[in-house]
Nucleic acid binder design. Structure first.
Length: 771
DNA sequence: GTGACCACACTTTTT
DNA sequence: GTGTGGTCAC
């Protein structure tokens, strides 16, 4: 085959190896996507009907790309392939099969995190549980975890261990009932209920097993138990399961992903062939060296060594910023420099951070410098208020049982239907067991509703009904959306506001209309696919809502755009960039403070570190800030331990000293001053400069000892001063790490973790010694 | 039923 | 420091 020439021997083997289970352990940048696409193309070329192939990717964007590549390899007959994410694939199956479950219908909607939270709160209220004692978010987390493990309400309840879990079980039961009565599914239901249908309906399972004779799963290390069961159930009949992954890149443990799935593949399929892709085509030797060395510190991993024939490359650069603004200025300055000197387009650069909150400062400085950028995380487009509002309208039109959407927009814009009326309506609908929208039609019968309220409610009902009629005619989503925006007065209200914010909201709504327009244009394709002619017209709207609820921010990633990309380390997985900046390498931020206590959490952070480093092709700049504004407070921190794990000979240290001195005597002085601690937690509080590292010789990196503090010419820290991250020793508790410092001087309350035990100590009395 | 004001939680990562 | 959600007065 002509295309096999671009492959190395192992890759080629992976592409050509025949039927049966196959595990491909693919290191970062080893060309796994290429192998996957070629293997699928190869299969088709050998005469396998694309109809029989299912490929699961991690994002919708990856799915789209893979589809395009395969089509370019084997032609348009590949259209019959299913390439999608787990969630999209399940929605597609559920649209056909959900009537197998009682209480759901095809017009179901998908609830996002905010909708789920609203529903859980509703449940807590009904059960009379105090939100203060039982945090809705915690409940949701437990429910989600249960669903990821395929524990339905009954099995969860049976296993409930303690008081909290028993309460959660009650909420879970009600929550699930409410979801059904709203004809809604949450993200985890998509997987769990699909599996349930397979298990309870052998004919359905057999149909899909016959259909999907060849199954591919990318990023297998990030599958959770439910996804694992789904895939393995489907693959049972033909056993043509090909999974690709890298245990070193498993970074979604916190949402239920289980690395064990990939580690156990050979146990699950003893006849499996196993191939390792270890040649990296992406990064320079030095970048790869750094990545390898860091990840070696993990104990729980499969031993492997990634190598490359690429150039040695330049050293990594570590920048010591003295606060987050200094750090951001460094990034901006470097981007300017590399773009001016080397003529790099802005699209070459990516800035990666651990937490979304860090994007703000970067954004501020990029904007100031007029550098085009794009953020792929943070407040998502579909989470904006106005977008959620218009979506709620569309969802209610599509699914008249959707109480959460109803409650959201029944009084938006204000039309005099207040909280008490809404409660009465919801209660009535529940009692009658009817969709909320139908209840509105009977407003006159709802007990306790005044005659004024009956009128307003009725006219609201008539308005939504009109929208429903239009939707049933199959008008484009764009036209429907425009109609809603106009008829509800939503747009008028915004216009009348005449503020910058309202302006931005209108702008966003226009953006939304371009999303709907794009969808409408692609509609033909969808209709062909929709095998349910009877409900076709409603499917137009349904298809749109479905698409919208399953997009991730990263799916909007546009390579062609000449802009610096900002995103979390997690979002960057699967991507690569010529030049990578990664900021905020401080203890407590990265690795995150919550991970320090548990070895397995720390190892996941370290894998995230590995992922981050291996995103870079040519240059990698790391940075940290000695002080960072967190929570409206200034916090001191130490460099991340991961920095010490990078071999010193491949990294150069640059510090902000010169820059800072220049600024101190220049115009920036006042500005920078404002970040100095005024009070609070940062130091011993006497107004002196903090520990002096920035000003004096600072800390330094030594080959055999790692990070070392040079004695500072300014102020040596007072022995009573502890900082977050300090290692300490206590006569009774032994060694520990400082987690938090509250207050100052002798009265400071210091939180220390000793051997997994958290203690709060007062500086004056605890005989703590800094190590 | 509406709007203003205050308290407080929030920061890990997302399909 | 910011955004949300709850309470209170009109």
């Amino acid at each position: 085959m002509y295309y096999l020439q671009d492959l190395n021997p192992v890759q080629r083997q992976a592409v050509e190896s025949g039927e049966g289970p196959l595990l491909i352990l693919a290191g970062a940048g080893s060309g796994k996507t290429r192998v996957l696409t070629y293997r699928i193309a190869h299969l088709i070329a050998r005469g396998v009907d694309p109809w029989h192939i299912l490929a699961i990717t991690f994002t919708n964007k990856a799915a789209q790309e893979m589809m395009d590549r395969i089509i370019s390899l084997v032609g348009s007959e590949a259209r019959n392939l299913w390439v999608s994410t787990f969630h999209s694939a399940c929605v597609r199956i559920l649209r056909r099969e959900i009537s197998r479950l009682p209480n759901y219908s095809r017009s179901f909607v998908i609830y996002d995190a905010a909708d789920q939270l609203a529903l859980v709160k509703e449940c807590l209220k009904v059960l009379n549980y105090d939100e203060k004692k039982i945090a809705p978010k915690a409940v949701l987390a437990v429910i989600s975890e249960a669903k990821n493990k395929l524990l339905d309400v009954d099995s969860f309840e049976a296993r409930a261990q303690d008081y909290f879990q028993e309460k959660v079980a009650k909420v879970y039961r009600l929550y699930q009932r409410k979801l059904a009565s709203n004809n809604a599914l949450d993200f985890d239901d998509l997987i769990m209920l699909t599996v349930k249908i397979f298990w309870e309906n052998p004919d359905v399972l057999e149909f899909y097993q016959e259909r999907f004779r060849y199954i591919f799963v990318d990023e297998y290390q990030d599958t959770n138990h439910a996804q694992y069961v789904l895939v393995n159930t489907l693959a049972q009949r033909y056993r043509n399961l090909c999974v690709v992954g890298d245990d070193d890149q498993s970074v979604y443990g916190w949402r239920g992903a289980d690395v064990q799935n990939i580690l156990d593949f050979e146990r699950d399929y003893p006849e499996a062939k196993v191939l390792k892709l270890e040649q990296n085509y992406r990064s320079t030797q030095k970048i790869l060296r750094a990545a390898n060395e860091v990840v070696k510190h993990n104990f729980n991993r499969k031993e492997k060594s990634l190598w490359t024939e690429n150039n040695e490359g330049e050293n990594l650069v570590l920048y010591k910023g003295w606060n987050e603004h200094d750090e951001a200025r460094f990034v901006v300055r470097k981007i300017r420099e590399l773009s001016d000197l080397e003529g790099r387009p802005y699209a070459d650069f990516a800035v990666l951070y651990r937490t979304n909150a860090q994007s703000r400062v970067l954004e501020e400085h990029l904007m100031k410098e007029g550098i085009p950028y794009r953020i792929f995380s943070g407040i998502k487009f579909y989470e904006r208020m106005e977008i959620k509002d218009i979506l709620a309208y569309l969802r209610l039109v599509h699914n008249p049982a959707d109480r959460v959407s109803f409650a959201r927009i029944v009084n938006v814009p204000k039309r005099g239907i207040g909280k008490s009326s809404v409660d009465k309506i919801l209660e009535y609908a529940e009692e009658q067991g009817m969709p909320v929208l139908d209840a509105l039609g009977e407003a006159a019968y709802i007990p306790g509703l005044g005659s004024r309220a009956v009128n307003t409610v009725t006219s609201f009902y008539q308005m939504i009904s009109r929208f429903r009629e239009e939707a049933a005619k199959g008008i484009p989503v764009t036209v429907l959306t425009e109609l809603i925006l106009k008829e509800t007065g939503y747009l008028d209200v915004l216009r009348a506001e005449n503020t910058v914010e309202a302006e931005a909201r209108i702008e966003n709504l226009n953006e939304f209309l371009s999303v709907t327009a794009e969808y409408d244009n692609n509609m033909e394709e969808y209709l062909e696919d929709a095998e349910l002619q009877a409900e076709q017209n409603m499917l137009i709207l349904g298809g749109f809502l479905e698409q919208v609820s399953l997009v991730a921010e990263i799916d909007n990633y546009d390579e062609g755009e000449d802009a610096v990309k900002l995103m979390t380390m997690h979002s960057a997985k699967g991507l690569e960039f010529p030049v990578v900046f990664s900021v905020g390498w401080e203890a407590g931020n990265f690795p995150s403070g919550r991970s320090i206590l548990e070895q397995y959490l720390l190892e996941e952070e370290r894998r995230l570190c590995y992922v981050t480093i291996t995103r870079a092709k040519e240059r990698l700049f790391l940075s940290y800030a000695e002080q960072r504004m967190l929570y409206g407070r200034i916090q001191d921190s130490l460099p991340s331990r991961f920095l010490q794990e990078i071999p010193p000979e491949v990294i150069d240290i640059e510090s902000g000293e010169k820059e800072i001195l220049g600024r101190v005597f220049g115009r920036q002085r006042a500005e920078d001053r404002s970040w100095q601690p005024e009070s609070g937690i940062t130091d011993s509080g006497s107004g002196k400069q903090n520990s002096g590292t920035v000003w004096g010789g600072g800390s330094s990196f030594s080959r055999d000892k790692g990070w070392q503090e040079k004695s500072s010419p300014v102020v040596k820290s007072n022995p009573d001063t502890f900082r977050v991250g300090d290692k300490v020793e206590h006569p009774k508790f032994g060694r520990g790490i400082v987690m938090a410092v509250k207050g100052e001087g002798l009265a400071a309350e210091i939180t220390v973790v000793f051997n997994g035990e958290v203690k709060k100590l007062i500086a004056e009395y605890a005989r703590l010694v800094k190590l």
